[in-house]
Write a protein that binds this DNA or RNA. Sequence first.
DNA 1: CAACGAGGCCGTACGCCGTACGACCGCGCC
DNA 2: GGCGCGGTCGTACGGCGTACGGCCTCGTTG
Lengths: 255, 255
Amino acid sequence: MASERKATADPARSLALLWRTREPTSRSAGPALSVDRIVRVAMDIADAEGLDALTMRRVGEALGVGTMSVYTYVPGKAELVAVMIDTAYGEMPRPVVEGDWRTRLERIARDNLALYQRHPWMLRAETTRPVLGPHLMAKYDYELGAIVDIGLTDVEVDAVLTLVLGHVKSAARAASEVVDLERETGMTDGQWWQSHAPWLETFLKPGAYPTASRVGTAAGQQHGAAYGPEYAFEFGLQRVLDGISVVVAERAANR
Amino acid sequence: MASERKATADPARSLALLWRTREPTSRSAGPALSVDRIVRVAMDIADAEGLDALTMRRVGEALGVGTMSVYTYVPGKAELVAVMIDTAYGEMPRPVVEGDWRTRLERIARDNLALYQRHPWMLRAETTRPVLGPHLMAKYDYELGAIVDIGLTDVEVDAVLTLVLGHVKSAARAASEVVDLERETGMTDGQWWQSHAPWLETFLKPGAYPTASRVGTAAGQQHGAAYGPEYAFEFGLQRVLDGISVVVAERAANR
DNA sequence: CAACGAGGCCGTACGCCGTACGACCGCGCC
DNA sequence: GGCGCGGTCGTACGGCGTACGGCCTCGTTG
């Protein structure tokens, strides 16, 4: 539990960490640790085993160092996760994409999905307030740049991006949950359904919830698993882009 | 951390709990506790103070009972949260709404938003696999019923609902994060920005990220806070519904 | 060249958490 | 009247994040 929330009374410290403001040590042999080494190791752990496996003890261990040494460089776990998030944003490509806004926005959606697939722990990290690191800024700037000129107001442009990124996160979360529950239980999604279905039928009065049964079954058969996260992503993304097209076209007509 | 994931090796037990299959005790004086009392108290705690404040010790205390007594009725915390979720679904209205599908779907979105506002902890509870309780089934059936007849396939109908509910959850989460960080830090969103902005400007090279700065400022000024969760909800909802309209119209034309 | 002080390192300990285990106890049933 | 069982719960264990204070090392200074 305890959450990844920052208790952070001190914005200066948190931001300095994110932006790596740090006078280099004058010592000849530099310190054994660094924020970057810590972050790299922490991301490796979280990528491989999930956020729950990321403990401060574990990080120290992986670095061959005492647990508390980590605290020399990072005020606490919440701040560590914040730096990890900003670092992950920094890994994203920011290509200049040819084509219309829809192509560009779709590309942004797919890049964000890929990010979440590479770092599923980002979906569970609760940030409450934006991280405000340099890479988030760069990402935000880049993504806005792809759609600033589509004829909407600045406020609307921001809302469009929020909408698309929100959809990506939703879909990514659904997909990720399937994956890591399989890891935890050792059962595939299909096996899980097969083990629950007989019991569920016991409780369910026959004929109850006809719509739910029919649609649920149809959806379950269509996709291999009971839920088709990739389908949900694609379908939803096209709907969202269609919806954005409607306003864009409206504005173009009224100009 | 430790997450609200169910370790649940035993589907029978979990489902029996959800569906309240329990032969009434023959004892004269019934037991002091019950699943319902536990769930009610737990929801009160979570509603008032958030999921982090919901501990088994706390639940026992609120019931005037030893911590471990709770485990007589509930296999563990994860299952407790699952029952809480299903119970919350049971509270939702399921009116027969007059009007077209868009009206009905919009109503569903607003009802779900209201649910999350009443029980923000639902946004943090990680369920990985659907809860499969009676009230979730009823909710799913009801919501599908509002849109089964719009001319899409069953699979698409399911995807439409997933899309809309996903948007609601995204927006609700954004709104909730603002609220409970204010509670935690004792600062409003505006105050938080004011305390961070000067530091951020220190790090930011002037002229860097022009688009982000302009759009971010515009969005910040438009809404009272730096982020306008209600606006994001409304804007996104209309876009999503517009997008759905496009397919619906397409199908109607091709029929 | 010796003394100092600061910065990096980290062992120990505290207060939380979820929950396994086994003891106690009072009631309904044979 | 004795038994068994369901409800209750005290204690304890292993894990977590992290506060605190000591130690050791090394560049700096007199």
